[in-house]
Write a protein that binds this DNA or RNA. Structure first.
Lengths: 143, 143
DNA sequence: ATCTCTCTTGATAATATTTATAAATAGTGT
DNA sequence: ACACTATTTATAAATATTATCAAGAGAGAT
């Protein structure tokens, strides 16, 4: 599964005229392998074994690139670090208010909300974001 | 309306044992008067006529206080400044992706989502956040 | 009205995340 | 292998927010 997704992503990048580099490849495959919605710092630490000299700027640059091409989604959390999700399928997130862990869940897409919001506000609505907050299973035990 | 809400808020603070100060009063009443979900900087600029020496730290401190007491809600947007909403009634937000403006809208509360998410993820869900993104009326014209 | 205790303010430094800059490096097509 | 250009690295800068602490000001007791 992951291997196929990586190939698809690489093709997409090639078609977009994006040059492939070892760092770029490593960041992308790490994102596709993990389900953990990592932060920049987590990616940095995970790859410093393979790339001891990699700059954090490289990670930021590539994540923005992947975002622009439509390969990853950025999840922002106020002043806390953003998290990055390479799972572009239709899903939502549950965020732990204690440890920050993010877990996926599915729910029938809220197309009604976008229509309703558009009528109500006059906005030309293009997307929405839904998250639930609470304690993850680990943090429930520890409290 | 606003006057009543201010009284209610002041009572709530007094009951919580919070000391009243001119700055605190000004920030709170400004938040209750405006419907614009202001940032810290906007609050700062709006009040510098009355309080030329007010520190931004004072605004941050008081907003956190109001948040803890349950008088305002913080809306976070990644690396951009947070916005603050003193309307604690049940509603959602439409955010303009061009100018950042936030407009309220109403929608039948998504209690189902929280239940579904809880079952799906094992989280003990306490709240949710829903936002729609798009172009506000002004920015639609200018594009 | 004044005293006193304690909380708050204001000024500034510190922290953290992200972006900008520029020289060195490395892809990729020819 | 060459040359052109994008990318990486290292570092500085920008931005938002929090921490620190001395000075100032509420509010209840006297």
């Amino acid at each position: 599964m992951s291997a196929v997704m990586l190939q698809t992503a690489l093709t997409k990048l090639r078609e977009a005229g994006v040059r492939m580099t070892p760092q770029r490849h490593a960041i992308l495959s790490y994102l596709l392998e993990t389900m953990s919605h990592p932060t920049v710092d987590e990616i940095y630490k995970s790859l410093e074994g393979k790339f001891p000299n990699m700059s954090v700027a490289t990670i930021y640059n590539n994540l923005r690139l992947f975002k622009d091409v439509g390969l990853v989604r950025e999840l922002t959390y106020g002043d806390a670090s953003s998290r990055y999700d390479a799972n572009m399928s239709d899903h939502y997130h549950a965020v732990c208010i204690h440890c920050g862990m993010v877990k996926d869940f599915h729910y029938s897409s809220l197309t009604d909300v976008e229509k309703e919001a558009s009528v109500n506000t006059g906005f030309q609505v293009t997307s929405h974001r839904l998250e639930v907050y609470g304690l993850c299973e680990n943090c429930q035990i520890r409290q």
